[in-house]
Computed example of a mutant assay.
Amino acid sequence: MSIYTEKETAKDFYAAVEGRRSIYAISNEPVIPDEKIEEIIQFAVKHTPTAYNSQSGKVVVLLGEHHQKLWDITKETLRKIVPAENFQPTEEKMNSFAAGYGTVLFFEDQNVVEGLQKKFPLYADKFPMYSQHSSGMLQYVVWTALEAEGFGASLQHYQPLIDDEVKKEWGIPQEWLLHAQMPFGKPTAPAGDKEFAPLEERMKIFK
């Protein structure tokens, strides 16, 4: 069942794909109710394809103080490894993420991946790659869905530096491998211009 009714106006699919950009200037001003955020992310988790229907993707949604806590953890983790004289740009970046409304954490369940490796040993070396493919699709679906609702988002990768503290803070199973963090919020500035390579250099058609 679709999460949209006939009376609701969801953004056209192509427009949503085109509109999905990396938005770094975000605020914590509400765009849609929290229940709607939960609904669209549940929809993405349920319907994004996975290899062998493994459903290996796991998602944690952090709002409010939990969202703030994540970027505090990340900032303090980076403070330990970035020289103090160079830390200001890093701190500003962490604060810009924390200024948003929430963060989506994307994990892949390694128990599921290892189970497939044992069940299909001929393709054992491929399942970690398939897992990454599945996670990438889930990230894209969530990102585009959030954009379609009026949020701006970006994709960040501070794993494995923050993995242990994240798992401890929110009781995440050890078998869940963190793949990405997606801070989102109401856009306060548009994305910059984007250059596109010629399509004839990126695709071939034979007919």
Rank of each mutant, 00 (worst) to 15 (best):
Q68Y: 02
E92K: 15
E38C: 11
L177W: 08
K93I: 06
P128I: 00
F97C: 14
N53K: 14
D109G: 03
L138K: 06
F106N: 00
A15I: 13
I81E: 05
G64W: 04
Q156S: 10
T48Q: 06
K58L: 04
V141M: 10
E38I: 11
E29P: 09
E169P: 08
L146H: 08
A98P: 05
A145Q: 10
Y158A: 07
P187N: 11
T5N: 15
V82P: 07
Q181C: 05
E114Q: 14
M203E: 13
V142M: 01
K126R: 13
A51R: 02
E91H: 05
T74Q: 00
I41F: 06
E108S: 07
A10H: 05
N111V: 02
P33E: 15
Y140A: 11
I32P: 05
Q132P: 01
N86R: 15
G64F: 07
P173F: 08
A145W: 01
P33H: 14
Q88G: 08
E200L: 00
F206P: 08
E114Y: 01
E175R: 03
A10E: 12
S96W: 03
S135F: 01
K69W: 00
A98E: 12
G64D: 13
K69E: 14
E39T: 10
P49N: 10
R79W: 05
Q156W: 02
E108I: 08
E91M: 08
P121Q: 15
D164R: 14
W170E: 03
E91V: 05
S135Y: 04
I23F: 11
A10C: 10
S154P: 00
L178C: 11
M182I: 05
N95Y: 04
F87H: 08
A44F: 04
I81Q: 13
K119G: 01
K126L: 02
Q156P: 10
A191D: 11
V166G: 01
F127S: 10
M1L: 11
Y123M: 15
L146Q: 03
F43S: 09
P89S: 14
S22W: 02
L146F: 00
D125K: 14
G136F: 03
A153G: 08
L70I: 03
W143H: 09
F151P: 08
V60K: 12
R21W: 12
P173V: 08
P160K: 15
D163Q: 09
I26M: 15
K46M: 06
K207M: 01
S2K: 13
Q139C: 07
Q110M: 14
L177P: 11
E39S: 12
A16F: 00
F97Q: 08
Y101T: 13
A191I: 09
E108F: 02
N28L: 11
P30G: 03
K7C: 05
Q156G: 05
P128S: 06
Y101W: 09
N28K: 13
V17G: 07
Q181D: 01
S56I: 02
W176G: 03
Y130K: 04
G185Y: 13
K118I: 02
E201K: 14
K11S: 11
D163M: 03
K93P: 03
A84P: 04
Y140H: 06
P121E: 12
